[in-house]
Structures are given as structure tokens and as C-alpha cells.
């Protein structure tokens, strides 16, 4: 059972960023789409920027997470140490559980 209804994911969950490419004002960077990360922090719920950009009220609000990725999982050619990471804020509807 999830601890609350606002957030579908918990800190520590492994997630996959959806790999699609809809038109419009998207806040999920393309270099992270299709990549595996881990939920690091639950920021809260915010108006949906994809809808706000169209002059709409941005509802329903979306849960926003800080998602952390290993650099080596993002870039095949990453030449720094194993433990270097990159993190970005990603809305829940762009994430699914990794399994």
C-alpha cells in the first residue's frame, strides 16, 4: 500500500521516465526520457505546466518529484566516475515504476 494518495511513488522507488514526445510546453528534458532513475524527494503538487502554457488553469495539479539518475545510465559514453549523478524535477504523469 502506498502511504498516501497524493503521491503514487515513494522515495527510493525505481522509476522509468516515459519515452514519448508530445508537442507543446514539456518540462521533461528529452535526454532523460526512457531512462531509469530513483525517486529522491517528493516536492509537492503543482499546477500542470503543460496546461498552463495553453492558458488553462493547469488542472488537475500534478505531483512533482526530484528524480536522480546515474550519469552512466543517462549517457553511455559518460567518462566520469561511477557515482556521479544528475537529478531533475519530473511530474508524476511522466513516470512509471521500473521493473
Amino acid at each position: 500500500m502506498r502511504e498516501n494518495k497524493i503521491f503514487k511513488f515513494n522515495v527510493g522507488d525505481e522509476v522509468l521516465v516515459l519515452d514519448h514526445d508530445p508537442p507543446g510546453h514539456i518540462r521533461t528534458p528529452s535526454y532523460l526520457r526512457g531512462k531509469k532513475g530513483i525517486i529522491e524527494f517528493k516536492h509537492g503538487i503543482f499546477r500542470d505546466p503543460e496546461k498552463l502554457a495553453l492558458g488553462k488553469p493547469g488542472l488537475p495539479k500534478r505531483a512533482l518529484y526530484l528524480v536522480k539518475f546515474k550519469q552512466k545510465d543517462v549517457w553511455d559514453s559518460y567518462n566520469g566516475p561511477e557515482n556521479d549523478t544528475i537529478a531533475a524535477d519530473i511530474y508524476e504523469h511522466w513516470l512509471k515504476l521500473y521493473n
Partner: peptide, 14 residues
């Protein structure tokens, strides 16, 4: 090299 570099991409509301 033993310090983790963590890049924060401020993509949204923070």
C-alpha cells in the same frame, strides 16, 4: 574523483 558530482537540472517548479 571520489566526490559525487550531482548536476541539478531545474526543470520545473523549484
Amino acid at each position: 574523483n571520489n566526490v559525487e558530482i550531482k548536476v541539478l537540472d531545474s526543470t520545473a517548479d523549484l
